[in-house]
Each structure stands twice: as structure tokens, then as C-alpha cells.
């Protein structure tokens, strides 16, 4: 059977890379006596896959990990058992059994589902972005101006070449307060999920995002995944360029809030823990 695990990654764990997190969870599951399915052969390993690898330096409210199990307890007990074995910086916040792939159907990987993700990007204390921006108010004003442009063209560097890309269509939501973000976010969801989502969020775990005294922050929903992928850092880089101030990659803390899959027919989103495959 397949299950999708949702976890927070925060604090010092933002310095632990994606592959190490994978190894980490394999050991967590062994300590928790989770009945994982193993590959065959002389060096068997647990079958698991991540939805969207998180870069070093980023924290997250919701990372998704799909696992293949031979047996399992109820979701509540599973969450409890795994949480008893994780160290500071990781917390399991969800567990959802998935439907088995139907016969003759191609196996769906979590990674192939991903199409969008929400981020909270905050300015770390001790850093500035030009003399004009001294508070969240002045930041919001500047960012709104920036986002009003018809297009936001950046130089996207790949291993082989550099090309100009308009990232504006890849930014599907911008908000400046948690309330505004929540309201706009609900709008992007599929109709039938709106109530479920509100219910889910009621019992939501305390946020694992770092909080800074300067209060300068922006919420964004960005295209993510194999079709189109926009990293939050690139938006901030474009913003700094627009302001005419130097972009300091260490000045910003990006925190992933949610990862979604898009229904191609409705164009609406569902968080990865709102789907069964």
C-alpha cells in the first residue's frame, strides 16, 4: 500500500540537503518499526520518493514523501509513531493512504503531480534592501509597483545557456499578510476542496517559519515542477534589480507553505494531501 507523509522542516535542518533527508527518513522509519516495502537484491532499500526536493537553506511547512508499506496503523497512530523518532527540525503533520494504481495504469509519482507551490519569503534581520524600504509598508508599496509591470523578464541561467524568461505568468498569487494569503489561496483550490481545506487548517500545526523583527515579507504562489519551475529566490532577485539595489542571496528566508497539483480541466489546485494518488 502507498501512503503520503507530510512533514515540516525547520530550524537547523534547513542546512540538511535533500538526499540526506531521504537517508534520514529511511532510518527514522526503521527506528519507528514502520513496515516498509523493500527493493529486492543484495542491498535492499526502502521504496520512497519525494514530491519536490527542497533546496538547502529553505524551510518548509509541508514537504511530501510517498512511501510503500506492507502494513500500517491508522493515520493518527502512524503520525505519532514517526514523530516519536524524529529529531528537532522535523515534524510529521499529515499521513494519507493513497489508492493503489489500477492495473495497466502507469504508476503516478508524487513528483510528476507537482505543479505549484506557495512560499513565504521574509527579509532576515540585519539585512536591508535599499534606503527607501524601512518597513513592511514601504516594502508592500514597492513590491506592488514591481508586480504591476506587464512582464517581469529575468535572465535564467541553465548549465548550457542563458535565456530571457518572463516570470510574471508563473507567479499566480501575491499577498502580504497571512489573512490575505489564506483568502487568496482558498480561491485557487478546487471547489469541492474548499471546505475540507478550511477544516484541515483549523487543526493546523503551529507554523515552523522563522519570524523576523523587521516584518518584511511576501507570500507567493509559484509554478513548480517539471513543466514550469520558478524558485522564489528568482522573484526576489528580479525585485531587487527592479529597485536598483544589489541582490543578496543570504538576505532572504524562503519558507515553503504548500505543494499542489493542478487539475488540467478546471485549472484549479489541490494540495498533495488532498488527492488520493
Amino acid at each position: 500500500m502507498k501512503a503520503r507523509i507530510k512533514f515540516q522542516k525547520y530550524g537547523a535542518m534547513k542546512f540538511v540537503g535533500h538526499l540526506d533527508v531521504m537517508r534520514y527518513f529511511q532510518k527514522v522509519f526503521r527506528r519507528a518499526n514502520i513496515d516498509s516495502e523493500y527493493t529486492k537484491g543484495f542491498s535492499p532499500h526502502q521504496i520512497m520518493s519525494f514530491a519536490a526536493p527542497l533546496g538547502v537553506g529553505l524551510t518548509s511547512e509541508g514537504e511530501y514523501l510517498d512511501v510503500q508499506l506492507l502494513s500500517a496503523d491508522t493515520p493518527e497512530v502512524m503520525v505519532e509513531r514517526i514523530n516519536a523518532m524524529v529529531t528537532e527540525g522535523f515534524r510529521i503533520v499529515g499521513y494519507r493512504p493513497l489508492l493503489e494504481a489500477e492495473e495497466h495504469m502507469k504508476h503516478v509519482t508524487a513528483m510528476s503531480l507537482v505543479s505549484s507551490a506557495d512560499y513565504l519569503v521574509s527579509l532576515k534581520d540585519g539585512y536591508t534592501i535599499g534606503a527607501e524600504i524601512t518597513s513592511q509598508d514601504s516594502f508592500v508599496k514597492a513590491f506592488c509597483e514591481f508586480f504591476k509591470s506587464q512582464e517581469i523578464v529575468i535572465n535564467k541561467k541553465t548549465k548550457k545557456s542563458e535565456k530571457e524568461v518572463d516570470i510574471k505568468p508563473m507567479i499566480t498569487l501575491v499577498a502580504y499578510t497571512e489573512e490575505e494569503y489564506e483568502a487568496k489561496r482558498i480561491d485557487t483550490l478546487e471547489e469541492h476542496l474548499k471546505t475540507e481545506d478550511a477544516l484541515l487548517n483549523k487543526g493546523r500545526h503551529p507554523s515552523s517559519a522563522e519570524v523576523y523583527e523587521n516584518e518584511i515579507k511576501v507570500y507567493m504562489q509559484l509554478d513548480t515542477g517539471s513543466a514550469a519551475n520558478l524558485k522564489p529566490e528568482l522573484v526576489l532577485e528580479a525585485f531587487c534589480e527592479y529597485l536598483g539595489v544589489g541582490y543578496n542571496e543570504y538576505a532572504w528566508q524562503a519558507h515553503r507553505l504548500e505543494v499542489y497539483t493542478r487539475n488540467v480541466e478546471t485549472g484549479k489546485l489541490a494540495a498533495l494531501d488532498q488527492v488520493d494518488r
Binding site: 537547523a12 535542518m13 542546512f15 537553506g57 529529531t87 543570504y250 528566508q253
Partner: peptide, 19 residues
């Protein structure tokens, strides 16, 4: 600082917090 840890190779060498 974050800045130091993100500049160097394998920052997990310096953060402790292991199992």
C-alpha cells in the same frame, strides 16, 4: 550565521542535532 553556513560545503558538518 546562515550566511556562513550557506557559503560553505556541507553545512551539516557544523550544526549538530544528530539522532
Amino acid at each position: 550565521s546562515d550566511e556562513v553556513l550557506l557559503t560553505i560545503e556541507k553545512p551539516a558538518r557544523y550544526i549538530g542535532g544528530e539522532v
